[in-house]
Write a protein that binds this DNA or RNA. Structure first.
Lengths: 238, 238, 238, 238
DNA sequence: CATGAATGAGACTTCATTCAT
DNA sequence: TATGAATGAAGTCTCATTCAT
């Protein structure tokens, strides 16, 4: 192996669509209705962009930033090399955009307003469930790992996630903790200073699954259940 | 910059030794005493090797595997580029060797025989203290982050660490947990199934400090203290 | 910047019309009067062509042939990139056409029939004045520089200008010289063999102004006046 | 033709040495004498550098800066593509260095101290002769044309030549003119203000030979002789 | 006719690895 | 054993040209 990639050359990641994309049959031209054709074009553009992002996700998560070849991204997306540059200024922009906007929706989902009158434990159980369903069992886990791996080398990216994701996540955790303390579900008030402790097992799961799942699969749900049992006193639960 | 690294070129990492290493004048050969000169040479060789590994550590942790240039490693180590190949087969070998043997000693330290009659909490407190002192506040934290970042792309490396480090660590955690349950310091027996929970905050600290310390410094010791307070019932502590 | 241009990317040459050209609303077709609409269309076509040539002039003179991007020409002309190909076969054709027809009119102006009975000196003074007014102080100087710069690499272009411009210019110079000799204004008959000497200062001016005007502005008119004083004996002048 | 070059692809300029350079038989290693081997290496480096510069000269003068491929320069120099980067930072540096140092020696030659008691005409005749012999009939003419062609697009280059070459040349011309006026060889004192007029025919020759020599060869020596006859009164000549 | 998204060949540049000294 | 000059494969990015709309 010559340059720098650890594993096999030529796309260790299996590529699903070898030829040109299916293109969802746009060849039939109605020849009038400029507006529709314009929106069609816009639609096509959006599709292409999405294809590129999707392909980039696969390649970047499989190889990391430096070892990913835009050539491979293009092939996987079913576009020419130059096409990528119609949508993204350069490799780094594609990479950052991918990471920037992929984890954002999570915050919305995780911060969904809890049903009233519910226990703190139930609130966090809901968090955990969403995390498992929407991250652990999804490509988002790969994205999170990618962020953990490359964040240090892209300070602006780290900052973005700190501000847009982490700060809100920490705040949410703190609210749950405060609520739990208030309701007597959580006894240790120092937890308020380290709300990260609530998320630590979730993060560990993501890292573990990336590195060691091959050798020792980890049941995220069960692990988090145990975590919850430890963090919350059962007293006030039904 | 064209290829792949996000930040500045030309060694973002400050290099301590600008000129060629002092090299302690080896050119004048005394021409007798082959045995001593042989051992001297071996010593010199060992030093060189160590210098290369040390330099590689700096560069790899600062840039990751792919973006690190052997040229920079050589410069930092004070040797010629070709010299690296006298000690390591190639870039990947150097990288793996670096990671393979750098974290091993930890297991010994962490697995040091606990003083008899001590509480489970005290045992884990000792663990935590060693971890903070020997990892968090050391270059080992960088190595751990490097492992987390690149492990997925070097399966053999991940396997090595799983077998040589993680398995033992998990076993040690489990022993502490069992002991804690036995002594009544730990009430939740399910923890025995997920000893990772004991380590999760430590790992979170390492990741956090790599990504977010700039924006929100994290006090590893205090965080772990809180963690310990939660995991261990205080009843039986002195 | 990676490829080839020395200075700043993104059009160092200031572009006058930022948005799309006004285009004088051609979309509403009155659907009758085909003849007039045809001529209108022809007019529109001629305008477009002219806009492209004008834009090409700016860009080519600013960057040279190879470093000029048709994309920039199109933007500056207010047309789409593809439109250029409706009027010109390719980049080189556009370039050559630009150069071919831009300098031709000069020959007419420079070869204008001199008022009868005038001195040779006056004839050449008139040449010089036209040259200063119509070349030196005009974009034509840029075109001349462009020809000088790229002519060697476009042999057919050099040949064209030799035949269509230079030959006539040389002939005109020779006529002036012969006339001057005949009238006793020029004493050195060898000048007839090197009529280029009459034009040399004009050419030097164009080159100098392209390269060094920043550091040492050159007054074309005054320089040529001195040149004339040297070439023509003052005896017979009024 | 695809990208940008006007004429034929694949090196219009004939390449003399297809294989690896002759390398002047350095294979015989004397195995001792480090100093000599070091100087040998230095010698080799100097040769290589020279080969690259020489090749670059050919290619740049044949195609201009933008259209020259470093690949071709490397092939012509008999080195690998990467080798160029051991000696020059990038394409532009190679180009500028080529131009910067190739014309400098001229100033020395042209500014050689004139024999005492000689006429101004003889001094300038000597200038002219050196110019013809060392520029017109040499590759330096190509370099001068290259400078004229690309100077506008490399402001620093134009400035360098203005300061290092032109200023001195102009000063030398002015000295000759002053001397000629003093000796009564030159009558028009205004020439002191436009010493460029003395050089104009030389420059015209270089440009002409680049563009039109194919169609109308120009005898530089004869043209300059006529020029001299016109500029200098014959009175004081023998 | 006009558009401009898409293409893909090709240029510059980097850097792991080799090998003569 | 150590060196570091040399190599050349490979990657990123550009831009002339095409073509469906």
């Amino acid at each position: 192996m010559s340059r720098s990639t650890p594993s096999s050359r030529k796309s260790a990641v299996p590529k699903p669509k070898p030829g040109r994309q299916v293109a969802t049959a746009t060849s039939g031209r109605s020849s009038k209705s400029q507006a529709r054709s314009a929106s069609l074009r816009a639609l096509r553009a959006a599709e292409r962009r999405a294809a590129i992002v999707e392909a980039a996700l696969e390649e970047f998560t499989a190889r990391g930033f430096a070892a990913t070849r835009l050539d491979d991204v293009a092939k996987r997306a079913g576009v020419a090399k130059g096409t990528i540059y119609l949508y993204f200024a350069d490799k780094e922009t594609l990479f950052q955009e991918l990471l920037r906007f992929s984890l954002l929706p999570l915050i919305g989902e995780l911060g969904a307003p809890p049903p009233p009158g519910v226990s703190a434990r139930a609130m966090f159980e809901s968090f955990a469930e969403v995390f498992v369903r929407e991250v652990t069992e999804t490509k988002r886990a790969d994205l999170l790992r990618l962020l953990i791996s490359e964040g240090q080398r892209f300070p602006s990216l780290a900052e973005f996630h700190y501000r847009e994701v982490v700060v809100h996540g920490i705040a949410a955790m703190r609210r749950v903790i405060a609520y739990g303390i208030e309701r007597g579900e959580i006894s240790n008030k120092a937890l308020l200073d380290y709300p990260q402790l609530l998320m630590a097992p979730a993060m560990l799961t993501v890292v573990w699954q990336g590195l060691f799942n091959r050798f020792a699969p980890l049941d995220a749900r069960a692990l988090l259940r145990t975590h919850i049992d430890i963090m919350f006193d059962k007293g006030n639960a039904p």
